Every structure is written in C-alpha cells, then in structure tokens.
Computed example of a mutant assay.
Amino acid sequence: MTQTAAETRSVVVEREIPYPPAKIWRALTQPHLIAEWLMKNDFQPVVGHGFKLSADWGSVDCEVKTVEADKTLSYTWAAYGLESVVTWTLTPTGTGTRLRMEQAGFRTDQEQAYQGAKHGWQQFFGQLEQVLARAG
C-alpha cells in the first residue's frame, strides 16, 4: 500500500514567549545559540543550504527551504528513515511572540519517531526559553 499525504501526521508545539520576534529569530538561526537549545550544527539561514544537526544519539540531515527574517523558517529534517519538514512561524503579539513549530511528514508506521518528536520538541522548547532568558 502506498502512503498519501493524508496519511502523514505532524507534531505541533505552540507557545507564547515574552520576547520580540527578532530575539527569537536569532536563537533559531545563529549556530552557537542553536547548539545551546537544539544540537550542534553548521546552520546558515540561506535557502538551499544543507546542514547537519548532531547529538550523542546521531545526526539529522537538513536543508533550508524558507527564510523570511523574524517571520518564518523551514528546513527538511531527515534521520533514520524519517523525511520531514520543520517549520517555525513567529507572530508578534501584544506581550511578545507566538512561536509555532510544526514538524510534518510522520508516516503512520513511524509511531516511535512521532512519539519521540512530541516529547523531544517539548524539551527543546524549554531549553530555547532558557537560552532566550540568558541572552539578554
């Protein structure tokens, strides 16, 4: 049986963060800051740039798809048979920014990856908020 787009799932995490979009954007796009909350990397906010995220458990192959400063960032996320796309959306609010992350493309037979991402992104968001609090 072949998979269709309707048979994939997404992990979505959305939080209201009390910082302006430009500050959060830096944490999403500067390699030394990404390393503090996500993984070691050779990221550049340039469409078409291939980069690698690496941790003690392995690595993720990525390619930048969309860069719209302080608004939207997306990149592919390929690891262990998972082919997905991570999209960050920053929306200014009266008190800061609504930050939304969606990782789309989990097939129905990738339950372990899906559950791992649901858990992992909650942790990454917590670490991101700590980095933002320190970054001044």
Rank of each mutant, 00 (worst) to 15 (best):
T66H: 00
G105Y: 06
G94I: 01
T66C: 01
T87N: 04
D56G: 09
G48M: 14
E102A: 05
A113Y: 05
D61F: 07
C62V: 05
Y80V: 08
K23S: 04
H32A: 11
A55M: 08
F106I: 03
T72L: 10
A113H: 13
G126Q: 09
C62L: 06
A133F: 05
S59M: 11
T89Q: 14
A79R: 04
K71H: 14
W88N: 03
T87D: 03
T8C: 11
Q115H: 05
A6E: 15
N41I: 09
V131P: 11
L33V: 01
R15N: 09
V12N: 13
K118F: 01
M101F: 01
E16Q: 14
R134I: 05
A117C: 04
I34A: 07
Q30E: 12
P21S: 07
P45R: 11
S84I: 08
G48K: 15
G136C: 10
N41W: 10
M39P: 00
A69F: 00
Q122V: 03
F125I: 01
A133R: 11
E102I: 04
L128C: 03
T93G: 06
R100F: 04
A79S: 13
G50A: 15
L132F: 05
L99I: 02
A5W: 13
P18S: 08
E102K: 07
V85E: 15
V86F: 09
Q3E: 13
E83G: 03
A6P: 13
S59W: 12
V13C: 04
W88Q: 03
A117L: 00
T8A: 09
L99Y: 06
V131Q: 12
A104L: 09
S54N: 11
W121N: 00
W77T: 04
F125C: 00
Q115D: 00
L73I: 02
G96A: 06
G96C: 04
G120E: 00
S84L: 10
A5R: 15
